[in-house]
C-alpha cells in the first residue's frame, strides 16, 4: 500500500500560502564533523554545569575538612587526640552531657510535636491556620535568639522566676544550666518537627484508620497500630534532625552561659581560651563525624531523604 494522497483536504488545512522564509530547511541536515556521541556531549555539558559548585565545595569544604583532620593530629598528644574524647575524663563527661541533652530533646520534641502535629492536621477548626503559623514562627530563629528566649522565660528577670517568686517567694531560675539548654533545644526543634509530622500526617490514608475501627480497634489501638507506624519515617527523620542540632548547636549554649559543659562549648573554649587548635580540630572533627553518621543512619532507616537540620 502506498502513501495516501488527498491534496484537496490539505489545501483547507493549510490555507495560507507558504508563509515564511524563516523555516530551516536547508542546512539542517549538515553532518557535524565531530564524531562524539550524543551521550558524550551531554555528559560533558552536565560536568561543566556541575563544575562551579564542585570547585567551590572542594575548595571550601572538602579541602578544609581534610586540613582540619590533619591538624587534629598535630597537637602534643598526636593522633591520640582523636581518642581523647573517650580517654580524657572531662571531654568524656561533656560528651555524655551533650548526648544526654540531645536524646532527651529528641524524645520530648517528638512527643510534643507528634501530639500537636497530628491534632492540627486532623482537625480543621477556625484559628487552626493561626496556630500553625505561630507554632512555626520560630523556625528560622538562630541559636542566640533561642537562648535569649530561654532567658526571657527562665532567666534572672524571666517570667517563670517572677511568677514563682510571687506565688511561693522562691525565684526559680534555670536558664543558665543544662536544663535551660534543654529547654532551648526543644524550643528550637518544635517548629520544624511539627511541620514534618503534619506533612506526614497529611499523607496518612484515613481509610486505614477507618478499616482498623471497623475491625473493632479502640482509638488508643488505632494510634498505636495505625498512626504511629504510619508516622514512623517522619519521626525518624525529624528525630535525627533534633538530635543532630542538639549535638552540634552552639549559639544557644553560648548565649546562656560559657559554663555549660557541652562539646561545642568545650571546642570553643579550647580554640579561643586555651588556643589549643589541634585539640579543638580533633574534637570538632569527631563531633562532625558523629552528627553526620546519625543523620546518615536515620536516612537509611527512614528510607527517604532526611531534610537537613538548620
Amino acid at each position: 500500500m502506498g502513501p495516501r494522497v488527498k491534496p484537496g483536504v490539505t489545501a483547507q488545512i493549510f490555507p495560507s500560502p507558504r508563509a515564511s522564509s524563516c523555516e530551516t530547511r536547508g542546512p539542517i541536515f549538515s553532518v557535524p564533523e565531530e564524531t562524539t556521541t550524543k551521550m558524550q556531549r551531554e555528559t560533558r555539558r552536565l560536568i561543566l554545569l556541575l563544575l562551579p559548585a564542585g570547585i567551590f565545595f572542594s575548595a571550601f569544604f572538602l579541602i578544609p575538612m581534610a586540613e582540619l583532620f590533619l591538624i587534629g593530629g598535630t597537637g602534643k598528644e598526636g593522633w591520640a587526640a582523636y581518642a581523647s574524647i573517650i580517654t580524657n575524663r572531662n571531654y568524656f563527661n561533656s560528651l555524655l552531657a551533650t548526648l544526654g541533652v540531645a536524646v532527651l530533646t529528641t524524645i520530648v520534641t517528638l512527643i510534643i510535636s507528634g501530639i500537636s502535629g497530628v491534632f492540627l492536621q486532623r482537625h480543621k477548626f477556625p484559628g487552626n491556620g493561626t496556630l500553625v503559623a505561630m507554632l512555626t514562627f520560630p523556625l528560622a530563629f538562630p541559636g542566640v535568639v533561642i537562648g535569649f528566649m530561654v532567658i526571657m522565660l527562665a532567666g534572672r528577670q524571666g517570667l517563670i522566676g517572677t511568677v514563682s517568686e510571687a506565688l511561693t517567694g522562691d525565684k526559680i531560675v534555670f536558664a543558665y544550666s543544662l536544663a535551660g539548654l534543654f529547654m532551648g533545644y526543644v524550643y528550637f526543634s518544635i517548629p520544624r518537627t511539627i511541620l514534618t509530622v503534619m506533612a506526614a500526617a497529611e499523607k496518612l490514608d484515613p481509610k486505614l484508620e477507618e478499616a482498623a475501627r471497623s475491625l473493632g480497634a479502640s482509638p488508643f489501638r488505632v494510634v498505636v497500630d495505625v498512626i504511629i507506624p504510619g508516622l514512623k519515617p517522619a519521626f525518624i527523620s525529624a528525630g535525627a534532625i533534633c538530635f543532630a542540632t542538639a549535638v552540634g548547636a552552639f549559639g544557644t549554649a553560648f548565649t546562656l552561659a560559657a559554663k555549660i559543659n557541652v562539646l561545642p562549648m568545650v571546642i570553643y573554649t579550647e580554640f579561643t581560651l586555651s588556643a589549643n587548635i589541634a585539640m579543638a580540630a580533633a574534637l570538632s572533627f569527631v563531633l562532625g563525624a558523629v552528627t553526620w553518621i546519625v543523620l546518615a543512619l536515620a536516612r537509611t532507616a527512614a528510607g527517604g531523604t532526611v531534610a537537613a537540620a538548620g
Binding site: 565545595f57 569544604f61 578544609p64 582540619l68 562532625g288
Partner: peptide, 25 residues
C-alpha cells in the same frame, strides 16, 4: 553521592566547618 556530600555542611556542626575554614584559609 554528590547530593549527600553537598548536604554535609548542614549535617556537620557549623563550629567544625568554621574551624576547618580558619585552619585552611
Amino acid at each position: 553521592a554528590i547530593e549527600e556530600l553537598l548536604v554535609m555542611p548542614v549535617a556537620v556542626p557549623g563550629l567544625a566547618t568554621a574551624l576547618a575554614l580558619i585552619v585552611t584559609y
